[in-house]
Design a protein around this nucleic acid. Sequence first.
DNA 1: CCTGTTTACTAGATCGATCTAATACGAGTA
DNA 2: TACTCGTATTAGATCGATCTAGTAAACAGG
Lengths: 357, 357
Amino acid sequence: MKQEKKLNVTLQQVAKHAGVSRSTASLVMRGSPSITPATRDKVLASMQELGYVYDRVAANLRSKDSSTVGLIIMELSNTFYSELLVGLHHKLDKCGKTIILGTTFDSAEIQDRLLSTMLEHRVAGIILSAVPGSPSEPIDQICKLGIPVVLIGRKLDTKLCDYVGIDNVLGGQLATNHLIEQGHRRIAFIGGYSLLSSWRGRKEGYDFSLSLAGIDIDSDLVVESPATLQGGVDSIQKVLSLPNPPTAVFCYNDSIAIGAMMKMKEMGVIPGQDVAVVGFDDIPEASIITPKLTTISSAPRLMGVHAARLLQARMEGLSTKPQYVILQPELVVRESSAYAHPENLPGNAAAKKTRLA
Amino acid sequence: MKQEKKLNVTLQQVAKHAGVSRSTASLVMRGSPSITPATRDKVLASMQELGYVYDRVAANLRSKDSSTVGLIIMELSNTFYSELLVGLHHKLDKCGKTIILGTTFDSAEIQDRLLSTMLEHRVAGIILSAVPGSPSEPIDQICKLGIPVVLIGRKLDTKLCDYVGIDNVLGGQLATNHLIEQGHRRIAFIGGYSLLSSWRGRKEGYDFSLSLAGIDIDSDLVVESPATLQGGVDSIQKVLSLPNPPTAVFCYNDSIAIGAMMKMKEMGVIPGQDVAVVGFDDIPEASIITPKLTTISSAPRLMGVHAARLLQARMEGLSTKPQYVILQPELVVRESSAYAHPENLPGNAAAKKTRLA
DNA sequence: CCTGTTTACTAGATCGATCTAATACGAGTA
DNA sequence: TACTCGTATTAGATCGATCTAGTAAACAGG
């Protein structure tokens, strides 16, 4: 554990070398205007010569501010989060904050441990994509400690922290309406868990659109599963082996949709032609897979930027009431829903659309 | 910037509340064996009651050790790095290290700034996937300061730090040999930049295999480009419009291969049938795309684990000579190279293989 | 020439922990 | 009883910076 045998160069030593006081050297470090160019250069030269490295940790201890923010997410292999990170990183860099990273793999226990670790590291704020179903008390306590928390993508019961997310209900409606417009009447909703607030939102939109179109909701067509490729494989198998299988599926996210399409191909069902598929998130893979996936774009990068902005505002002490940023999802129509369902459609141009490859 | 208006609970206050000294409270924190269970419980109870949070930053300042490690990579949208992070994170968690993250987007300037930031944060070590062509002096200096650096994936000229990577030459050979065995004699190598040590390695393997098979190297068939989807799109267009186009392409990485296959479909060329494609890395998308991509597996997760292991050993002060861990790549044959090239092949079973969807 | 104000710099306390060296105390031994 | 010895605990210095309050010099105005 111990390291750094070599004695570090301290500001004290720099000051001595330059023939000034600790305080002066410190002021030079921080670019104080009340320092003569002559002494400033002298100190800077000494720093250069001695190979001085600023100790931000010591500085933060005394000045009681922090130059780090914590980022806690489920996992990075999920493209949604890595995209989110791009936006976040870019914005935080600008205000001189460094990111401390933790991944929960959706374990509430790990999440608690990570939150503690972040606190111990004196982060200036935390951006959290909470483990579904995790209690909100620990997070409330952190907020009360004066450390701002921004929730991202997944909502919790707390009324103390900011939240950035998308309108899942609208997203669910967009997807379901699109499938209904293509002539489908048996539409499944597969993947994800009802524990997730986002799942409940998308389901609500799905229910709403169906009932608006006068379609009865068949609970057999709703299948929960992990929000992964494998989850998609399992769920699609389940609904397609029903006595009265769906002609379209709305998937909780793109990973599930991709898994579902892979399994369909294996089963000899042509996705986009025999069964329409709509995903959610618009991850890069969505436009790569064949057929290209129709999906709901949730602009993860933009969510990152917004989260950073909210956190930044709060770190600067603007203590307003909790803010909610709800981004509007957009329907991106691609090949996986290009063929209209033959039934109930008078003259459909969409069915004549050709599919690539 | 300033925050934490509420006075933090300090070990001092805990000690006072429990009726012991600072030192005793500190010993309790660290689980010293020479503490009576009675006083231990008393202190623990006080901590609980006052809502004490350990200040790891202050502790690190005094004890001169660090509980963070820096991770500097190009970007996270690249699945290779997020996979790598999974392995790394898992291993570092176990030894109580927290990750400070930085992404360079392959800018040498950003890399330098990130390295400084990491030093200022007193990281115990750095894991670095260096920007290609960046100078090695700054990194050498960090090593000399006693902070171990593990290079990952991309090699630099320095002889001071550990390195984890794969055998790129072997990978290049595996890919090229496979295509030669399928009957191809005009094989392109597309994407990536010769600045990258990994590019040079793969190219070397490609050259070696070709010359071993008695095939002349045609410099028109080697195209450099960014290592992205778009790079693949551009490069494949270039080589396929040659007067004598290749029948097979070996791509610097999977992103390029996927971009190339997308463009081929657009051009009416069937990847895997008209032109064989081999990628590199085996990212998750490789087994999702149609046709499924033949590729060279570089086990990014394993690389993460190895990097963490090396760093850990060095942080514990075992100051041995620089270590090099070179992982063996593996050829993963899928659909994109399933059809053998008709010329030069007596009786080929592979050509009869069917393609899904 | 004296006073008041600004400017450039500094000594010493401080952040919240750990480390060192010294303490008090009970048990064991002569 | 006195003397060691080991154990549990502690006071005070310390890590490397910042902050507070203050000093000495330069300069202006009456």
